[in-house]
Nucleic acid binder design. Structure first.
Length: 270
DNA sequence: TGCGCATGCCGAG
DNA sequence: TCGGCCTGCGCAA
């Protein structure tokens, strides 16, 4: 489930399992093998996430920059790592733990300067305490692009994917197709504040759960509501099903190549 | 068993 | 705006 909360969880888990100590680094297949040899037996000194980007810092060498894309996954395990199976891009291991990275869009060794350049092309991240929504507002308030597209533009705002986009706009009662420039400052502040809450919950829980208790269907047990994305949501992938608040069927359309979901009654135009 | 789709992103046109 | 891509899942056949 690679939206921003996933990467912040990964940064914390890599830090917890491997931080401060020398680690074995290997890349059994693929173009990262030479870089892995340079990192092998170096200490992992820091980890951080910005939006959907993960950075693993080795002070003596540089940073591993990871982007999971749509398919990438990290699996952590206890004990000595088993023999690698299949396409394994990056393994970090000690005698006690291992972490296997598969299928990422990006896994590269970069310098401090290159890392800065990545940060500079990303918008503020609601999960980073040192970020505010101001820079995003500067872009959004002057744009004729839809709010739906702006929220997914990582140069404007980082860490929000299709689920958080759909859910925050529902919770704020905003039509996803309204242009950024017709959003009020108060509405933007509401989006940013709500994203901060929702995404922090996502980091804490490991899944995206956005439905307020008063809207939770009584009949739904925990097992039943944990579907492909993990938690319970208002509109994401609930096309044609009744809105949990008003009962109107949830709408869907392809918008800029991605599936968009909203309730036309709770999120009216204008 | 194989198909289509998916929470992302890029480059070509 | 579209196709492509590194994977994994649910579903139909």
């Amino acid at each position: 489930m690679p939206e921003g909360h996933t990467l912040h969880r990964l940064a914390a888990e890599y830090r917890q399992l491997f931080g401060g100590e020398p680690v074995r680094v290997s890349s059994p297949q693929g173009p990262f093998a030479a870089a892995a040899r340079r990192l092998d037996n170096q200490a992992l000194t820091s980890t951080e996430a910005h939006g959907k980007h993960l950075f693993l810092g080795f002070a003596a060498v540089g940073w591993i920059h990871v982007h999971l894309g749509l398919y990438g996954k990290v699996r952590f395990g206890d004990g000595p790592a088993p023999a690698p199976v299949g396409q394994l891009r990056l393994r970090i291991a000690t005698d006690d733990h291992y972490a296997d990275l598969r299928g990422p869009t990006t896994c590269e060794l970069i310098s401090e300067v290159e890392k800065k350049a990545v940060h500079q092309r990303l918008g503020p991240d609601p999960l980073r305490p040192d970020h505010t929504g101001d820079a995003a507002w500067q872009r959004i308030s002057r744009s004729g692009t839809t709010v739906a597209a702006l929220l997914m533009d990582q140069k404007v705002l980082s860490g929000v994917g299709n689920i958080y986009r759909a859910e925050v706009l529902f919770r704020q009662g905003l039509d996803p197709r309204m242009p950024g420039r017709s959003l009020s400052r108060a509405q933007w502040d509401g989006i940013w504040a709500d994203l901060t809450v929702l995404m922090r919950d996502g980091v804490r829980d490991g899944w995206i759960d956005t439905v307020r208790p008063e809207h939770m269907p009584q009949a739904m047990g925990r097992a039943a509501r944990e579907d492909a994305h993990g938690g319970e949501v208002y509109v994401y992938r609930r096309a044609h099903q009744p809105c949990l608040v008003c009962g109107h069927p949830v709408s869907t359309e392809t918008h800029a190549g991605r599936n968009l979901f909203w309730c036309p009654a709770c999120q009216p135009p204008g």
